[in-house]
């Protein structure tokens, strides 16, 4: 039986088999065997007879299992109890265990939820607070500050000034620095968080280990220490 190029009708086709890498989300990848045709008439190339769809879908299933495993392993490694997650998200109890053991498969929506939780685990905290908008914003900011802190290295010598903005709805503490600048001795005590927080409302969330922003692109910068 002669096969024809569906694009131009030429029967001058070359069939090739190759291993294709399928890049997925969360940095995952897998491979599959790809059948491809090259038309020597119109120089078009592709899966002209739709032979790869099943292989791609199988590869996508493999990736989906990887996403599920990755997220559930993350929960286990970080002592996040499956039952708690199920309670917070209003999932039937043992859903995650069934997914982990392969007893049942999450839907596409379920996989998407797991991906979000793997990248933004603080979304669980948002759900725990009934998706309250204001609380969610605070959780988000706190998480962002926390993340920035881990990427920030700062020394006492960088510090030039610190202070706080307080409104009736929020409090913001900051440290202003000039990198490589000379430290003003009088400002040194501002590095002491006790000094910094002493003059402001005690309701301000103070957690020097979790909240700070540092814009590494500029020499002069404001570091946010706390927000509530």
């Amino acid at each position: 039986m002669t096969i024809e190029c569906p694009i131009c009708g030429s029967s001058n086709l070359e069939r090739t088999l190759s291993t294709e890498i399928l890049k997925g989300d969360l940095g995952k990848a897998t491979s599959y065997k790809q059948i491809s045709y090259m038309c020597l008439g119109c120089e078009s190339e592709g899966d002209f007879f739709k032979e790869n769809t099943d292989a791609i879908n199988l590869a996508l299933d493999t990736l989906r299992n990887e996403y599920v495993k990755s997220t559930l392993d993350y929960f286990a490694d970080n002592k996040i109890n499956f039952s708690s997650v199920e309670r917070i998200l209003n999932l039937p109890q043992r859903t995650l265990t069934k997914w982990k053991n392969g007893v049942s498969q999450p839907s596409a929506a379920g996989v998407a939820l797991l991906k979000f939780l793997r990248v933004f685990p603080w979304l669980l905290d948002v759900a725990e607070h009934s998706y309250d908008y204001d609380t969610s914003q605070k959780i988000f900011l706190r998480s962002a500050f926390n993340m920035m802190l881990h990427k920030t290295s700062f020394s006492e010598d960088d510090t030039m000034e610190a202070g706080a903005f307080i409104t009736n709805k929020s409090k913001l503490m900051y440290i202003y620095t000039e990198k490589n600048g000379e430290t003003l001795p009088a400002k040194k005590n501002l590095m002491n968080p006790n000094n910094l927080s002493a003059g402001i409302d005690q309701n301000v969330l103070w957690d020097r280990n979790t909240a700070m922003i540092n814009n590494l692109e500029h020499d002069n910068e404001i570091k946010l220490f706390s927000y509530l």
Binding site: I7, K23, S36, E45, D47, K50, N52, I56, N57
Partner: peptide, 17 residues
């Protein structure tokens, strides 16, 4: 065409035809 499908996958997350 093969390139169109590859771009659909890489840019738009549309994996199959």
């Amino acid at each position: 065409i093969g390139n169109a499908l590859r771009d659909a996958r890489n840019i738009f997350h549309l994996h199959t035809e």
